[in-house]
Each structure stands twice: as structure tokens, then as C-alpha cells.
């Protein structure tokens, strides 16, 4: 931000300038964007402010504020609520830690798998079929994904296909989502299965946007397939990769439905994540505490959003 620039000075940094429409014909502009602005205010800004206000109080079961407690909901979250964040044990545990695991594993694996499939699919004849198959899970609701994977992970080898498979190899069946040490990975894998299609479709489209002649030029310049990928395709995919990463990150910070349906955060609190904790606390009548958790979640998402917006803006200026 250019706090040093004089108000109305022409020396604002590029990309920070208000669209000139605001200066030229203020009221007419608002006539056009007014309805949308009103909806945003009512549906987003107002609830957001209310949530922030709630987060500084305690509520009764009818979600009326009974007492103002300042930042106590926040201190509770980071110090006293061991199911949200437990730093006393090693490795640390709790919903927040689980969420970080999700962010790292889910985002990288979905992205890399999506990229790999996009690149490889472009080289085979049955590309369309292959991409459709990978994309299908995207069309399935997360709750349905949960049901599907419940069947896959089912402890009874006669029902659960994964256990059915490993028992034929001679292993004992594993209660994939019933054990604290496997439940998070089992859930993350199911969610990766559901999201790889998205990464693949976006990256595959971007890959198609790279001119065939550029690839051929590289080939005659002496590039092998790996050189083409690393020196040409990957750099040219940097923007779509950033977009997909941001989408996956935001998606994973908010992850809720799959976990809620499959494990409800269990066993114990082993698979709790921020959103599941929030809903649980809300159900316990802890409206203020739930609101504080919601605010923390929002604060996690904001920097990613900001990065995304800036990235787009810089692309527009240089591109």
C-alpha cells in the first residue's frame, strides 16, 4: 500500500488504482454494482461481522450471548482445548495439527497426481476416456464419497474391498478408519481420490494451451521429453499450478463433510479437523467458541486468497 503517496496522487503503484469508472461517473457505477454489493453485504459481510462479535462471548443453547469474555475463546483454543491443539505430546496432535497434515499431504499429492495424469494422458490415444474416469469422482458429492470409501475401508474382509485384498495377500484386516494412527491417512486418501480429477482437468487444459510448435521447436532444439516437461511445460504451467494449489488449500482448510460422515472426528478425536470441531462445539451450545474457531479458519484462508488475488493481478499487468 502506498501510504506515503499524497491522496489522489497519480503515483499510485500499478494495479492498485481504482477502476476509473468510480471517479468518472460515481453514482452510475453504483447503480450497476449496487444489487450485487447489497447481496454481498447481507450474505457475507454481515454474517462475518456477527461471527467475529460472537467469538468474544459465551452463548447459551439458544445462541444468545450471555457473557463477554474477551479473547478467552481464543486462549482456550490454543492452550486449554487439547483436542484442538495439543503441544504437550510429540508429535503434536489435535484438530489444527490434523488440518496441517491434510494441507500438506492432500495438496501435494492431488496436485502431483493431477499433473502426472494430465501430462501422461496427453500422450495416449484413449486420452478422453482416461481423463473422464479420473474426473468422475469430482461429480460425486463428498458425502457419497464417504459412503463409497467406508465400504472400501470396512474392517470385515467380506465387505471391505481393501481388507478383502490384503487378506488374500495373507495380511490381517486393518480397521483403517477405526485406528488413530491410520484414520487421517485413510480419509486424506479418499479425498485425494475425489479431487485429483479437478487438478488434472485444469492442468490438462492449460497443457493443451501450450502451442504445439513451441514443443516441436524444443524438440528440434535438442530437448528430450523430460527437458520439454521441465524447461517448457512446467514453467508455462506455473500460473494454473498456483491456481490449483490455492483451490486445493482453501478446500482442505474447510474440509468437513467427508470426515463428518465417515468418522465424525473419531475414533476419540483422532480425525478431528477445524471445521468438524467447529460444528461439534456449535452443537454443544458453545456458539461463542465455535465462532472463534470459524474466525481462526478464516484467518488461515485470507493469506492464501490474498496470494491468489495478487498473482492474478501481476499476471494481468505483465501479460
Amino acid at each position: 500500500m502506498s501510504s506515503t503517496a499524497a491522496p489522489g496522487s497519480v503515483g499510485r503503484p500499478r494495479g492498485r488504482r481504482l477502476p476509473s469508472i468510480f471517479k468518472r461517473q460515481g453514482w452510475q457505477a453504483f447503480l450497476f454494482i449496487g444489487p450485487a454489493l447489497l447481496l454481498l453485504l447481507v450474505l457475507i459481510v454481515y454474517p462475518m461481522i456477527r461471527t467475529i462479535i460472537y467469538s468474544f462471548g459465551n452463548t447459551n443453547s439458544r445462541l444468545e450471548i450471555t457473557r463477554w469474555i474477551g479473547f478467552d475463546n481464543y486462549t482456550r483454543m490454543f492452550t486449554r482445548d487439547k483436542s484442538f491443539l495439543n503441544l504437550d505430546v510429540f508429535p503434536p496432535s489435535g484438530a489444527l495439527v490434523n488440518n496441517v497434515k491434510w494441507m500438506i499431504l492432500y495438496t501435494t499429492v492431488s496436485l502431483l497426481l493431477g499433473l502426472l495424469i494430465a501430462v501422461l494422458a496427453a500422450r495416449v490415444r484413449y486420452e478422453a476416456l482416461m481423463k473422464s474416469i479420473v474426473f468422475v469422482p469430482m461429480a460425486i458429492a463428498a458425502t457419497a464419497v464417504a459412503i463409497i470409501w467406508k465400504f472400501v475401508y470396512e474392517p470385515d474382509p467380506n465387505l471391505g474391498s481393501l481388507n478383502g485384498f490384503i487378506t488374500t495377500l495373507g495380511s490381517d484386516p486393518i480397521a483403517w478408519y477405526g485406528r488413530a494412527d491410520t484414520v487421517n491417512y485413510a480419509l486424506i486418501f479418499a479425498y485425494i481420490w475425489a479431487s485429483t480429477g479437478f487438478a488434472m482437468v485444469v492442468l490438462s487444459a492449460a497443457l493443451k494451451g501450450i502451442s504445439e510448435e513451441v514443443i516441436e521447436a524444443a524438440r528440434t532444439d535438442g530437448a528430450g521429453e523430460w527437458d520439454i516437461f521441465r524447461r517448457i511445460q512446467l514453467p508455462l504451467l506455473s500460473l494454473p499450478i498456483a491456481v490449483v494449489t490455492v483451490w486445493l488449500l482453501i478446500n482442505v482448510i474447510k474440509v468437513f463433510d467427508l470426515i463428518y460422515v465417515m468418522t465424525g472426528g473419531g475414533p476419540g478425536a483422532a480425525s478431528e479437523v477445524i471445521a468438524v470441531t467447529m460444528v461439534d462445539e456449535f452443537g454443544n451450545g458453545e456458539g461463542g467458541y465455535a465462532a472463534a474457531i470459524a474466525v481462526v479458519m478464516m484467518l488461515l484462508i485470507i493469506p492464501i486468497m490474498a496470494f491468489n488475488v495478487r498473482r492474478f493481478r501481476s499476471e494481468r499487468v505483465t501479460g
Binding site: V214, A217, T220, G224
Partner: peptide, 20 residues
Amino acid sequence: VAPRDRDIAMVFQSYALYPH
């Protein structure tokens, strides 16, 4: 022989410069 091993240089109609 693969293009990379043919020791030829090609100039394309669209120039095909590496945009990045």
C-alpha cells in the same frame, strides 16, 4: 533418428519462441 539427434535447426512459421 529422433529430432533432437538430427542436428538440424528449424524456424517455424509462428516462430515458436519460448514465451517464458
